[in-house]
């Protein structure tokens, strides 16, 4: 082999050694599996565990490259699962039950909120709502078609009241009717809007209180992690890894010791909420994600799911039973 021929071989050998060295230094290369996770709403304190799991590498350590996508009023995770745009999502129980009633193949992997954050805010100095009957004759805000309508009707039904005994007022995202006291009982997400509205009213010297359906026996399940039946059948390992990593993320995010890191992670997406407000939102979220330390994060409350299905049947939101219990497939806790 002449010097002309030997040179390219030598160069290739050196290059190979360099690349090999770099690979050894980087450790074993694990190919990341790409999945999409569609949230139910915009990123805020209610999604702290989701963004924290992504930010702190809980998901990537499980070999998952997850695109966490914010939700919104026109986003529907269950539809995206079926269309293949997402592999995992967050959906409320009523969404899951409606989808099952129409033949969708959706499976619940974990229940994020043990207490539904949907509550009604009112001015504590004006009146008190200690019983459901205290709503009689008052104007109560509901979003027609939303799950607050379903919950309010269920509440009224539990004490034999009907919508003629309260004045139901249609509400949207504009709080003006509440600020003007035209609709004094207003539906809010207790851990996010509830904090913001409390602050607004406190600035005017007004105290607020919350009417919580959970305290009056209505356990209507809120957000849960869902996937498709096809996903769980074809990729059970991925489903297991995803759920475990996500719940581990939630577990860590709900620890007060990690509060600063959680706020940093959420602030990357939610720049409009001040740090002080977010701290209080997180504190309220903790109470709803894990109200009882003995119950693990992600626990599926079967009684609550059964009650949610019953409420929807009674209100004719679905034509008949869908056996939602059969679609609850809790994954192994982290």
């Amino acid at each position: 082999m002449g010097p002309r021929l030997a040179f390219p071989w030598l160069a290739a050998l050196i290059l190979l050694c360099l690349v090999g060295n770099t690979l050894v230094a980087a450790g074993p290369v694990v190919e990341q599996e790409k999945v999409t996770y569609r949230l139910k709403w915009l990123i805020n304190a209610s999604t702290a565990g989701d963004v924290f799991a992504l930010d702190q590498g809980f998901l990537s350590r499980q070999g998952l490259e997850v695109a966490v996508k914010a939700g919104g009023p026109e986003r529907d995770a269950v539809r995206e699962l079926e269309l293949g745009y997402a592999q995992f999502g967050v959906a409320s129980a009523d969404q899951v039950i409606r989808a099952l009633a129409k033949g969708a193949s959706v499976v619940v992997l974990a229940q994020l909120f043990q207490v539904n954050p949907l509550q009604w805010i009112y001015r504590a100095d004006d009146f008190s709502l200690s019983r459901i009957q205290d709503l009689a004759g008052r104007t109560v805000g509901i979003t027609y078609g939303g799950n607050d309508e379903t919950i309010m009707r269920a509440l009224l039904a539990t004490v034999g009241m009907n919508e003629h005994q309260v004045r139901l007022a249609s509400v949207r995202y504009d709080y003006t009717p509440f600020f003007r006291n035209q609709v004094p009982i207003w539906p809010v997400y207790r851990n996010t809007q509830g904090i913001f509205l409390s602050d607004k009213l406190a600035a005017e010297g007004e105290r607020v209180a919350f009417f919580d359906p959970f305290e009056h026996g209505v356990r209507f399940v809120a957000n849960s992690i869902v996937t498709s039946k096809k996903m769980i059948d074809l990729h059970p390992q991925t489903v297991g890894r995803f759920t475990r990593a996500l719940l581990a993320g939630w577990q860590a995010a709900m620890s007060p010791a990690n509060e600063n890191a959680v706020i940093r992670a959420v602030t990357k997406y939610d720049r409009d909420t001040s740090e002080a407000v977010m701290r209080r939102q997180l504190a309220a979220t903790r109470q709803m994600i894990q109200p009882d330390p003995d119950i693990p994060i992600g626990h599926i409350d079967i009684t609550a799911w059964r009650q949610t299905e019953q409420i929807m049947i009674q209100q004719r939101l679905i034509p008949g039973p869908v056996n939602v219990i059969g679609r609850l497939e809790p994954q192994q806790a982290p």
Binding site: V78, R79, R98, A104
Partner: peptide, 10 residues
């Protein structure tokens, strides 16, 4: 064609 449920397209 996509065998979608009534939830996605009735």
């Amino acid at each position: 064609a996509l065998n979608l449920s009534d939830y996605v397209i009735p």
